[in-house]
Lab assay of single mutants.
Amino acid sequence: RRKSKRKPPPKKKMTGTLETQFTCPFCNHEKSCDVKMDRARNTGVISCTVCLEEFQTPITYLSEPVDVYSDWIDACE
């Protein structure tokens, strides 16, 4: 008699959501930077609500707010 092989359980999909508020690289306030994605103009704007620092970068249809933040961090270095 042959043993029946069980199929492995399906893999769980990533359910965690990406951050939309970030720590400002200038004033170091946590969750003080908000990202606005202007898909019509293909630009992402991130601004700090505390020190009013602002950064704008081009985006694509695949871009997420975390991509705008990482572009800002890269531009600071």
Rank of each mutant, 00 (worst) to 15 (best):
L18Q: 13
V66S: 13
K13C: 10
C27L: 00
Y61R: 15
S4P: 04
V35C: 01
K13A: 05
T49H: 05
K3E: 15
F55M: 13
E54M: 07
G16P: 11
R41K: 14
I59P: 02
I59G: 03
I59L: 07
V45E: 14
D67M: 04
F55T: 02
K13H: 08
Y69W: 11
S70G: 12
C76L: 13
V68I: 07
K3G: 06
S63H: 13
T20A: 14
K12H: 07
F26K: 15
T15K: 11
C24K: 01
I46K: 01
A75G: 11
V50K: 10
L52F: 11
T17M: 13
C48V: 00
T17N: 04
K31D: 08
K12P: 06
R6G: 13
F26P: 00
N42Y: 02
K3V: 05
Q21D: 14
C24Q: 01
W72G: 02
F26A: 10
K13Y: 05
P9G: 12
V50C: 10
F26H: 00
K11C: 02
L52C: 13
C33E: 02
D38W: 03
S70D: 12
T15C: 09
D38E: 10
P10K: 12
T43Q: 10
T60F: 15
K31C: 03
P10D: 01
S63V: 05
Q56Y: 04
N42K: 05
S47I: 11
R41E: 10
F26M: 10
Q21I: 04
P58Y: 04
C24T: 01
I59W: 05
T17P: 13
R6I: 06
T49D: 08
P25E: 01
P58F: 12
P65N: 15
K3L: 09
C24M: 03
D34G: 15
T15W: 01
K36M: 06
D34K: 14
K11M: 08
Y69L: 13
M37E: 02
G44C: 00
N42H: 14
P10M: 10
S4M: 14
L62E: 13
Y61L: 11
E64R: 11
A40F: 12
Y61E: 13
Y61S: 09
F55H: 08
K5D: 05
N28L: 04
K11E: 12
S47L: 10
C27E: 01
C24A: 02
K11Q: 08
T57P: 03
D38I: 06
E64D: 11
S70T: 12
R1L: 13
R41Q: 11
V45Y: 02
T15S: 12
E30N: 08
V66P: 08
T43Y: 03
S63L: 03
R41D: 12
V50Q: 12
H29R: 12
H29L: 04
E53P: 01
E64C: 02
P25M: 04
V68W: 01
K11P: 13
W72Y: 04
R41W: 04
V45A: 09
L62R: 14
M37S: 00
P25R: 11
L18C: 12
G16E: 06
T60A: 07
C27G: 03
L52D: 13
D74V: 10
I73P: 01
L18A: 10
C24P: 01
S32K: 06
S32Y: 01
V50W: 14
K5L: 03
L52V: 08
P65S: 07
T20E: 08
D74E: 13
L62V: 13
P58I: 05
N28S: 15
P58Q: 12
G16F: 03
K12A: 10
A40M: 14
S47W: 10
K31S: 12
L62I: 08
K11A: 07
K5V: 03
P10L: 09
C27A: 01
P65D: 08
M14N: 05
P10W: 00
T20H: 05
P58H: 14
V50P: 00
K11L: 06
P25W: 06
C33G: 02
P65R: 08
G44F: 00
M37T: 01
V50G: 08
D34I: 12
T20Q: 14
F22L: 08
H29M: 03
K11I: 05
T49S: 12
D34L: 09
C33I: 05
E64S: 11
D71G: 12
S63R: 05
D38R: 04
N28A: 13
I73L: 12
L52Q: 12
Q56A: 09
P58R: 09
L18E: 11
Y61H: 05
D34Y: 05
K3T: 11
S70V: 11
C27N: 02
